[in-house]
Write a protein that binds this DNA or RNA. Structure first.
Lengths: 131, 131, 131, 131
DNA sequence: GTGGTCTAGACCACG
DNA sequence: GTGGTCTAGACCACA
């Protein structure tokens, strides 16, 4: 479900945090879905349970997850754009993020074409699941 | 020339290392070009000089830079993309970059759909330029 | 500077979190002041350093503190009331909080008078320090 | 009758224990009064019945409640404030309560000054009533 | 020497 | 069995 690369200098908890946010954004996790238990995910990722718990706690504080003591952790909300923002506003904010992605990708020899291909596969996966 | 984001949980030295490698790969730094001095770059990035020096030393050990004492640090080679890299390898490297994009976009309320739309417009523009 | 009661069922980290927030609210910590180091405070409170670090990290995420890697942790901001709120609004929100305090105090045999006396001493201490 | 705040980091059992003791101390529950059944209270508070049962059992061990099997749970005694309690003792107990108030007030942007002002108005009202 | 990350492992609250 | 808290202690990034 999620992956983590221990050789990446990015802290493990930050990788997992991003992975979960991305999964929610991509619709791979829908509102109300239950996440793996802390201990199970720790085993799967070969990571300490405290590290997973820390991420769940942070995402709960951020309002994305809700935990029910003794039951489990669930997806609570999907961030929504600020009220009065237009399509143009959003594109203006999105541009630098995409540029950073493309710059980093090209630095490791991945072309714009490859990136587009990959992002499109996310769309397809998402559509399939919702069928 | 380079940027560093102190609020990114990725260690500063890793951000700078990646940034320099990307600049060389993208041709913004050519073989023989001189890099800023350690102290100058430290001031520009508001970072400790030791951190910059460590990155330069690390890149020198990797063969990308060469330091000439008393003169400066120069680009020595262009990193070669690993020879037998497959589609699968590239996807593995690309995944965390895309996850970062999706997570950051989601945090400002931009959905996967919006991202895909925007990336597709780049594809179109790119095709036109090559016509 | 802060105290923590290990026999109180309230988690230690929550006691410390409240203590620091209260100290800032009471002006015992002003914007720009440096907090004790994580390890020093851990020793003083006879508590694990991770517990202190967790609280500092939470308060940083809340925007109350700012840490400078390798230097220390500082008071960053004092929460301000939402823009358009009137004195009357604030009093309406404050009332249940004070009532809870008075109820809890009376449950352990502390009178309204005692509470008022104690709260007033905070005012006095605060005034003295700012002189 | 009692309330419990699941978002308060204080364990639920501790909140309930404190709430019952406070109700007895304040006279809202008199000696001989019957408490809600474990199951009823669990439903009302949206809490697990085991948690309520544990609190009742604990208070019975403390001598405050008495359970008559098949009939119900009753108030048995009024807790006596510790005999030789000094001003200093009371202040030690009062401190965390006031800190909670200040931290919560500060979180909604209410300053120490506002709190003191409000508490003082209570003092005045109280004096008038006793005139 | 400062804070940050991670691990291992214990014990508790809750369902 | 679920998540939550805490400890002890190692190692790293940074000034």
């Amino acid at each position: 479900m999620f992956t983590v690369d221990p050789s990446d200098p990015t802290p493990i908890y930050a990788q997992l945090d991003r992975g979960i946010r991305a999964a929610i954004a991509a619709g791979r996790l829908a509102v109300g879905d239950r996440l793996p238990t802390v201990r199970q995910l720790a085993v799967d990722l070969r990571v300490n349970a405290n590290t997973v718990a820390k991420v769940y706690a942070e995402l709960e504080r951020a309002g994305l997850l809700a935990t029910q003591r003794g039951i489990g952790t669930f997806v609570r909300a999907v961030p929504t754009p600020p009220a009065g923002s237009t399509r143009r506003d959003r594109e203006r904010e999105l541009k630098p993020l995409v540029e950073r992605l493309l710059a980093d990708a090209s630095a490791i020899g991945i072309s714009l074409h490859d990136v587009i291909q990959y992002v499109k596969t996310l769309e397809v996966r998402n559509a399939k699941e919702n069928t």
